[in-house]
Design a protein around this nucleic acid. Structure first.
Length: 432
DNA sequence: TCTGGGGTCCTAGGACCC
DNA sequence: TCTGGGGTCCTAGGACCC
């Protein structure tokens, strides 16, 4: 499709193009069944056997290999359903450290091609290859080079989409799967998009797709030609504009380099679905403490502190609520986050009390800390010797012990087995 | 089809301040 | 005293992605 005469050239100006490789500057590279591929790399015996990472009681499949996909097993599906579809499905545990290691190696491979890399997640990235064509050839040739390098060095396959914009490249790589390349040159963008159903657009999920369908818009072509007023009525003004931008392939082609160390994550959180719904406050509090400890450990490891604590609660009927509270100052202290989460939980219980059809048993609780700042920028205004310093010191002592002896050797007394006579049971399955 | 866990971004109303 | 508008923060919820 794209001819690729070599030769560097400034970005296309009003004078038009001679070198077509400028037209498709964006490469989207996406690993095929990433978590399953990495987990199964060293298991040739499972190569052609249906296998999945994750699943289990109340769990979902994180990723399935293509043998399992042939049975209809998909990532995001409940473990129970996957087993029903494919009774011989083999479940393997995920290895988060391995996923991170491979992800870093992938980033290095991409950076060898171009410095303009936007990592979209652990296993996918956008590459601006405008400046690499003189050295490496056409965007298609670069895509094949990246795929071959990933395969040689990491032993997994990936697919690539090549297009003038980020969203079109993303859709193209999805349609190139598995182990393929799809190039969509500018003159084919509109035709390519307009043949799709609306849910294939990047950013259109089930909720938006349902609204569009209700408005009689099933294809991207219909969406592109829908009167703006009609679209606004269906999805709201902001989304309406954005959808038509996407439907005509006019989204961005500039990449945002991922946040570096100088710009921390915006939030960190942890949540947990229980093997059995919880009804006792003490049980819930113990989970909250464990979650607060987990989140603040990550905050401290990342050198950040946050000012807003968010509690998430999911009832047995799947109703999910969040309540949040801004603290006076950012914190990374377990006991402060735990105290805020507890206060939010108790306030919620008071809200619930006396309300008809109260929901009672909890299926899940979560703790998230938002508004993160580098800890160095947090000047604690406390008077020296105030109690929180004690808690903070305790946290840091725990961090040191944990890094020396491994997770779980030191934990708050309330989390010790048998601390309240309930034998500290850990509900739920092992983390994937 | 009985639905995980980690995130990001957007919207919208109300409080509060200037 | 009344009124208007803008900006920012807080809170809750929703949608989406991998």
């Amino acid at each position: 499709m794209t001819g690729s005469p070599r030769g560097g050239r400034p970005p296309p100006g009003p004078g038009g193009y001679l070198d077509r490789s400028w037209d498709c500057p964006i490469l989207h590279v996406d690993m095929d069944a990433f978590f399953a591929s990495v987990a199964l790399r060293d298991r040739p015996d499972l190569r052609d056997v249906p296998a999945a990472v994750g699943g289990g009681h109340r769990g979902v499949v994180l990723s399935a290999n293509y043998a399992a996909r042939a049975y209809g097993v998909r990532g995001g599906m409940s473990g129970a359903r996957a087993q029903r579809l494919c009774p011989q499905l083999v479940s393997v545990p995920g290895d988060h450290a391995a996923f991170s290691t491979v992800s870093s190696a992938l980033r290095d491979i991409f950076r060898r091609v171009t410095p303009l890399v936007e990592m979209a997640s652990l296993d996918e990235a956008f590459l601006d290859v405008r400046g690499a064509t003189r050295r490496l050839g056409s965007p298609r040739a670069i895509a094949e080079l990246v795929r071959a390098t990933v395969h040689d060095e990491q032993g997994i396959t990936c697919s690539a989409g090549v297009a003038p914009t980020v969203s079109v490249a993303k859709i193209a790589s999805r349609r190139a799967k598995p182990d393929g390349v799809l190039v969509v040159p500018p003159e084919e963008v509109v035709g390519f998009l307009h043949a799709l159903d609306v849910e294939e657009l990047y950013g259109v999920g089930t909720a938006t797709a349902t609204r569009l369908r209700r408005a009689g818009l099933r294809t991207v072509r219909q969406l592109a030609h829908a009167p703006l007023e009609e679209l606004r009525a269906a999805v709201g003004p902001g989304a309406a504009h954005q959808l038509q931008v996407l439907a005509w392939g006019r989204d961005r082609s500039e990449l945002h380099e991922r946040r570096g160390p100088q710009e921390p994550d915006r939030s960190m959180g942890a949540q947990r679905t229980f093997a059995r719904d919880l009804t006792e406050r003490e049980d819930v509090l113990r989970e909250l403490l464990a979650l607060a400890a987990k989140v603040t450990r990550r905050l401290r490891a990342g050198g950040v502190a946050g000012r807003t604590v968010v509690l998430t609660v999911r009832y047995a009927d799947f109703t999910t609520l969040t309540r949040s509270r801004a603290l006076a100052e950012p914190t990374d202290v377990t006991q402060e986050v735990y105290a805020a989460a507890t206060a939010l939980l108790d306030a919620l219980r008071r809200e619930e009390r006396g309300r008809p059809g109260r929901r009672g048993a909890l299926r899940l609780v979560g703790v998230r800390v938002e508004g993160l700042l580098p800890s160095a920028r947090v000047h604690r205004q406390r008077v020296l010797g105030e109690r929180e310093h004690g808690w903070s010191d305790a946290d840091r002592a725990m961090d040191r012990a944990t890094s020396r002896f491994g997770a779980g050797v030191v934990r708050p007394a309330a989390l010790l087995p048998g601390a309240d006579g309930r034998a500290g049971r850990r509900s739920g399955d092992a983390p994937a």
